[in-house]
């Protein structure tokens, strides 16, 4: 056991103070230290995208960042998207309505990829959607319904504005 160091990390607008070993991955910190198991872990080498979170608002792999590097930073995980189960984020609602998931393993990472993507590009073409999804593997859906869900989400989010 090596030495632990204190960190202060804001996750979904809540401030957490913990002691971490430098080698603890941010993905494991979220899951094991904070119990936020919505962030999934598939490969631990950056390929599958299941662990994608927002780091200061930008999508990144939480399996390729040490928790200690998040000291003082702002993290958003899938648990931060909806107020409660009756008030889903429009992207979540669209995944529900368009059947954008089957087993759901890939879903949190895909949602966290899409939040900044739809902010930067509120009217994506199908090509742009598929490109945006290229860093997230899904073994169930064949992606078609995910693409449909993204289209639906972009319409819903425009209607809200």
């Amino acid at each position: 056991m090596t030495q632990s160091f204190p960190v202060t990390i804001t996750v979904n607008e809540k401030i957490y103070r913990r002691e971490v070993e430098p080698r603890l991955l941010l993905s494991d910190f979220l899951r094991h230290e904070l119990g936020l198991t919505g962030t999934h872990v598939g490969c631990e080498h950056g390929v599958c995208g299941a662990c994608t979170i927002l780091f200061d608002g930008e999508s990144m792999r939480s399996c390729l960042i040490f928790a200690i590097q998040a000291d003082g930073h702002n993290i958003t995980t899938v648990e931060g998207l909806a107020k409660d189960k009756d008030n889903l984020h429009p992207v979540q609602q669209s995944f529900w309505e368009a059947h954008g998931l089957q087993c759901g393993f890939c879903t949190p990472g895909i949602l966290m990829t899409l939040i900044p993507f739809l902010k930067q590009n509120p009217n994506p073409t199908e090509d742009e959607i598929r490109h945006a999804l290229s860093g997230n593997l899904c073994r169930c859906t064949g992606y078609q319904h995910i693409v449909d869900a993204v289209k639906l989400a972009s319409e819903k989010m425009k209607a809200v504005k």
Partner: peptide
């Protein structure tokens, strides 16, 4: 280069 999530970092 890789995916947007990787290029962000």
């Amino acid at each position: 280069i890789a995916h947007p999530q990787i290029r962000n970092r």
